[in-house]
Design a protein around this nucleic acid. Structure first.
Lengths: 283, 283
DNA sequence: GGTGTCGATACCGTACGGGTATCGTGCCAC
DNA sequence: GTGGCACGATACCCGTACGGTATCGACACC
């Protein structure tokens, strides 16, 4: 019973699916199956019930899930405290500019409460770099939205949001309950500055090359719609400013809010941060 | 940072000696040195200061020692709780008959307090089997005194006690402050029944073949001294009965109180029990 | 009954944890 | 001063176990 094995079990118990858990753990499914089976053997109890209907926790498994989560949490705190004792307890967090996310503010509160000794540096970036400087090594961890170039990064999904079109209230489409991308095909869209991550551009333009004003931040998007009537892609739970409406886009893949960090970043505070982030966004 | 690695560090930090820690961990010294160095690298801080004067904890190491102990304790509790949830939380403890040990009673209290769900079976044995049935698989763990045949067993020392001679108060030697084995060479001693562990016999007879009554338990020893004037080996902190005196034997190697268990016993409660035992005997 | 999904199994290569042998250094004894 | 000793570090070897790919088996659903 090692911490790694327990984290495997937690992943499977949370996903209730070996394949998805394996993806989350950046490994393939067979060794994961084997590790869980070994854990069951070592503990002398069945933890999961595999059936054609799917994977379910046994009562013993439910107990272990609670206990393992607490143990892994404490292990993360050990890392943080050791780092603090070594005087190396700083964490640089990248945020996408203007993202007023209730999850992020819950996270900030929870983190500073649990790790008061840690110095958190904040680096806000505009929409041209959705990784907030991860690839350049400017931040330890990015709280941002996909998609972007994930090579060399570990990406942990915090939430998925449906996507909507940002429209002026005087726009005829603004009264519709939902829209498809095709309804907006001939509109002016946002564009992003040269050098912006191509995955990001493609996603937020619905996969098509578009025409329209170049924007660098959320406020510029809002102003662009107000002044140009441009169609803006946004999230339906984003409260629109006065004079603007949001209509759900039913054929857009949902947007992922993620925490991402460099695979080779050895900062021991990252794990704990991610764990608290997951909890903050789950609530 | 795995639980195993942390237990290595705790062993070294407690012994402040790589060689002794390696013995305690049933491994050799080089891989232990390497594991500690890897841990230091991973945590990015020096945990131990090696010098010719010996090994010392750095401030960071002191923090980790506390944290690691707490984490390992919690890991043990996880095992116990999972076992309890699986309905397999029983532990059979072997005790040497008539051993009125204050450490053992503290242990009993602490254990039942920390693990109320566990069913503890007690098996008392006489002096003929100092392992209390470990070799026969009759108990999970033995709280006993050495020495005995340790093959296949893991033995964890809880305390060492100086040894004394048990004498009648009317014995001329009873007024001495201390004795040597040679002073008792011509006395009648205790002997043990056939089949008793030879190591045990040899130790408690001071390494010599002796003559005298055969005893099976502590009460029989006491009665044998009272009736025969036989010399009894005992522990100086053992409160003698009326009419008896204890005189320290300065050339007897001290007696070890130990917890011992079968290496291949998979009962998950053993670790936690040993940990609590160590704490109970330390106080 | 074909097809797809999903966990289990089989098999393989490598990396890491453990071993023994030996070194380097500092201390002590003579 | 120098030889011996204590002790941690280093070098090197080996086996296991972990993670990979390929495939199977069971079951559900068209």
């Amino acid at each position: 019973m090692e911490l790694r094995t327990l984290s495997y079990f937690v992943a499977v118990a949370e996903e209730l699916h070996f394949g998805r858990a394996a993806i989350r753990l950046h490994m393939s499914q067979p060794p994961l199956s084997r590790a869980i089976k070994q854990l069951e053997t070592e503990l002398g109890a069945a933890l999961l019930r595999r059936s054609s209907a799917g994977v379910a926790l046994t009562p013993v498994g439910a107990v272990l899930l609670d206990e393992a989560r607490a143990l892994l949490d404490q292990a993360d705190r050990v890392r943080v405290r050791v780092a603090a004792a070594a005087g190396a307890a700083t964490l640089t967090v990248g945020l996408l500019a203007d993202s007023a996310d209730p999850g992020a503010s819950r996270l900030a509160g929870a983190y500073s409460r649990q790790h008061p000794g840690v110095e958190v540096h904040i680096r806000e970036t505009d929409l041209t770099d959705p990784t907030c400087g991860l690839h350049a090594g400017l931040v330890d961890i990015a709280l941002t939205r996909g998609p972007f170039d994930e090579t060399g990064l570990t990406v942990h999904e915090l939430r998925t949001d449906p996507v909507g079109a940002l429209l002026r209230t005087d726009d005829p489409l603004a009264r519709r309950d939902s829209l498809k991308l095709a309804d907006l095909a001939d509109r002016r869209w946002f564009r992003f500055p040269a050098g912006t991550d191509p995955l990001w551009q493609s996603y937020w333009n619905g996969g098509e090359p578009r025409v329209g004003p170049v924007v660098r931040g959320v406020q510029e998007c809002v102003q662009a719609v107000l002044w140009n009537g441009t169609v803006g892609m946004t999230l339906v739970d984003h409260e629109p400013a006065a004079g603007l409406a949001v209509v759900p886009l039913i054929d857009m893949p949902p947007s992922r809010v993620v925490a991402a960090w460099n695979e080779d970043d050895t900062n021991p505070l990252i794990r704990s941060f991610v764990r608290i982030a997951v909890a903050a966004y789950r609530d």
